[in-house]
Design a protein around this nucleic acid. Structure first.
Length: 274
DNA sequence: ACACGTGTTATGCG
DNA sequence: TCGCATAACACGTG
């Protein structure tokens, strides 16, 4: 699930349920997800501290921590392809829990990759079946581009640059714009009526403006409606699907290494160019 | 059984 | 060296 909207709601869970509580134990059970993993690393860094704030850039989370004497290493979390954050207390899921998935229950403990226990009985779990998520200390976010949620038009245009790469690959490149994944990229380009295979350098100024507006609209829509999967073109990303706007057949391709769906009429050929 | 996937990174090619 | 495309990672799901 995790693209920008899902990570933003995870940020809300952290900010609402985990701040200012003393950390009494840390289970960094999965040395593949928790990196670098030297024994006791996460415990030494966090036990005795409290989370003081949560920052999100793109799909990355940075959780600042401190104790009575000063700052501690920050905890960096990335949800990968399917990770989630869940907070529980003695009565069960408190936040981030999902009634359909029920990821907080004991039956799902095998997918807990990192757990942070607080003095008041709450526990934060990183739940990740696929183990493509990551937990690190003092993460380096310097290679991330501007966040898709608040990047302005001028910065957006500058970030895209005059690349020969397909515009969809540029949108998904986290060092260009942070937060856009496969679904949001398809939704953005569909809203803008731009062929995802168009070399970025061939996009005229008006198309860049449209693309910027469409990206922000796609992200805002996903934030308000509960996730990247709520996009308007997402249901059409199936074999035999048709464009929700014009009814033309949807076309499947592989761009930037990811399955890509676009409208064969509105996003074909020179649409959005010239 | 087999292909696929809402992500990131290392490797390979021109 | 630069920039882009692909493979690899891990594992549940259809």
């Amino acid at each position: 699930m995790p693209e920008l909207p899902e990570v933003e709601s995870a940020r809300g869970v952290l900010a609402g349920c985990t701040l200012r509580r003393a950390i009494v134990a840390v289970d960094d059970v999965d040395s593949y997800v928790c990196r670098p993993h030297r024994a006791e690393d996460f415990r030494d860094a966090l036990v005795g501290a409290r989370f003081t704030g949560v920052h999100r850039q793109g799909k990355s989370l940075l959780i600042r921590a401190r104790d009575d004497t000063g700052s501690r290493p920050a905890l960096g979390l990335h949800l990968g392809m399917g990770g989630r954050l869940v907070v529980t207390d003695a009565d069960g899921p408190l936040a981030g829990g999902d009634s359909t998935h029920g990821l907080a229950g004991p039956a799902h403990a095998r997918w807990f990759r990192l757990s942070v226990h607080f003095a008041d009985g709450r526990t934060l779990h990183l739940v990740d079946k696929r183990r493509l998520g990551r937990a690190v200390l003092d993460p380096d976010l310097s290679r991330l581009g501007p966040d898709a949620l608040d990047v302005g038009l001028a910065a957006f245009r500058a970030a895209l640059g005059a690349s020969k790469a397909p515009v969809k690959a540029r949108l998904m490149d986290q060092s260009v714009i942070a937060g856009i994944g496969n679904l949001l990229a398809d939704e953005t380009l569909w809203r803008a009526r731009i062929d995802p295979a168009t070399p970025t350098v061939e996009l005229p100024d008006p198309a860049i403006t449209t693309l910027h507006r469409s990206m922000r609209a796609a992200v805002q829509h996903a934030l308000r409606h509960g996730g990247s999967h709520t996009g308007r073109v997402i249901p059409a990303r199936v074999a035999g699907g048709s464009c929700p706007r014009c009814g033309a057949p949807m076309r499947r391709a592989r761009i930037g290494g990811r399955t890509t769906w676009s409208c064969s009429a509105e996003q074909g050929g020179d649409a959005g160019r010239g």
